[in-house]
Design a binder for these strands. Structure first.
Length: 428
DNA sequence: CTGCATGATTTTAG
DNA sequence: CTAAAATCATGCAG
């Protein structure tokens, strides 16, 4: 109400403007002016009336308003008024414009966009979604490989967020374009009664878009937050340690102790172990990394374990070997000790590995193994000169390997190797 | 609650 | 890049 009167008050005096101000060069204008001035004395009042009527429109019902609008449009003074308004508009709009012009792309929203893109939430459409998510997950984990199993949960959650994000975004976009259309239609409609330049419509649209984009930003922000939360939870979960099951540990230990001379499984071996243990290749790598360092740090502590697995491997191998020798020809030239079990195949492999293919030392080492195995098998306990622990593979292997020749290691550990009274080693 | 075992991650060295 | 070494964080037995 207040506003209306103010506007009216402001506009009415301006109505006189054209007379003073309009460029004389425009013949149409001139004519309009003349028309306007013909009913001398009246024009300003008429304009005032019309404006008042316009203002009153809001109070009327739709039909009534429609009728009035029509009447207004048909009013003989309408063109004149229109042109006047045009003039006013031109002046005021010019001054309004320039005050606030399009701002540069918001750095904040750019940041969010980048992040969402990086996280695989926005970016390529649905099809590539899971791939992007996987990539994001992999990047997040820093582990370059597989892990698809443990990431699946994360991926699922991310996909969920992604879906929500997209549907919301779509909703916003639809609402935005709907609203924009509506406003544009309105403005177009109104442009029949009041002067609205395309520029102005454009500006209006821009304003609407800005509003909606600020809403969008909120959406993006909350999506980012959700992703962050998910990510942190995921990282936490990933950090959670779950012991491998017994069987897996057994398999790994078996491999480790039967390859003690060179406990570096090849990529294929790792894959095989991973499959056998139901863990990932990187977990196998972790395990071997940890095992090597911990074994090296405290060999004594692992002696028992070593023996245990030595026996196990030997027995297994013996069984296999027995079966094999039954089936095959007896051709195992190295097996000098026919004793209770023939030479384990596992030992064979391990030796060939440890010796780098040199066949020369095989025999003594095998003998050593047999001895140790006997000892271990019989659990004779104290083997004289050794400080309490038998060292199945170590001595033999130490002679042939260098993966653990890290200076003072064994000195810290409990039972240092007793070089004396030991078969094998370099002896021959 | 504590200490150790152990899987995972980070840092360092080659 | 890989492996070693250091470190972190959790699970679990006592």
């Amino acid at each position: 109400m207040d506003e209306q009167t103010r506007m009216l008050a402001g506009l009415t005096p301006l109505g006189a403007l054209p007379q003073a101000d309009v460029g004389e060069s425009d013949p149409v204008r001139k004519q309009q002016q003349q028309q306007q001035q013909q009913p001398l004395g009246q024009p300003q009042q008429d304009i005032g009336d019309i404006l008042q009527q316009i203002m009153a429109i809001t109070d009327e019902s739709l039909d009534e308003a429609q009728a009035r609008k029509h009447a207004l449009n048909c009013h003989r003074m309408k063109p004149a008024l229109f042109s006047v308004l045009c003039e006013i508009k031109e002046k005021t709009v010019l001054s309004i414009r320039g005050v606030q012009e399009e701002d540069p792309p918001d750095p904040q929203i750019m940041r969010l966009d980048n992040m969402l893109l990086a996280e695989g939430v926005s970016g390529p459409e649905k099809g590539g979604g899971s791939a992007a998510a996987a990539a994001a997950a992999a990047a997040a984990g820093g582990s370059p490989n597989d892990g698809s199993i443990e990431h699946s949960d994360y991926r699922a959650k991310l996909a969920q967020i992604r879906q929500i994000y997209h549907s919301e975004l779509e909703k916003y976009e639809q609402a935005c374009s709907e609203f924009t259309n509506h406003v544009m239609n309105l403005l177009r409609e109104q442009s029949r009664t009041r002067p609205i330049s395309p520029k102005e419509i454009e500006r209006m649209v821009a304003i609407i878009h800005r509003k909606f984009s600020s809403i969008q930003m909120q959406l993006k922000q909350s999506t980012c937050e959700a992703v962050m939360i998910l990510r942190s939870r995921f990282l936490d979960a990933r950090r959670k340690r779950r012991n491998f099951n017994k069987q897996a540990t057994e398999v790994l230990n078996e491999y480790f102790y039967s390859h003690l001379s060179n406990p570096y499984p090849s990529e294929e071996a790792k894959e095989e172990l991973a499959k056998k243990c139901g863990i990932t290749v990187s977990q196998v790598s972790n395990w071997f990394g940890n095992k090597r360092i911990r074994y090296k740090k405290n060999i004594g502590k692992f002696q028992e374990e070593a023996n245990l697995y030595a026996v196990k491997t030997a027995v297994d191998a013996a069984n296999v070997s027995a079966q094999a020798s039954q089936a095959n020809s007896p051709a195992t030239p190295n097996s000098g000790s026919p004793g209770s079990f023939s030479m384990p195949r596992a030992a064979d492999t391990f030796l060939s590995l440890s010796l780098n293919g040199e066949g020369i030392n095989v025999a003594p080492c095998l003998q050593a193994q047999v001895d140790t195995l006997h000892r271990a098998t019989h659990l004779t306990g104290g083997y004289e000169g050794l400080s309490g622990s038998t060292q199945y593979p170590t001595q033999c292997l130490d002679a042939n390997s260098n993966w653990q020749d890290g200076t003072n290691l064994s000195s810290l550990t409990s039972p240092p190797r007793a070089p004396s009274s030991n078969h094998s080693d370099t002896s021959n």
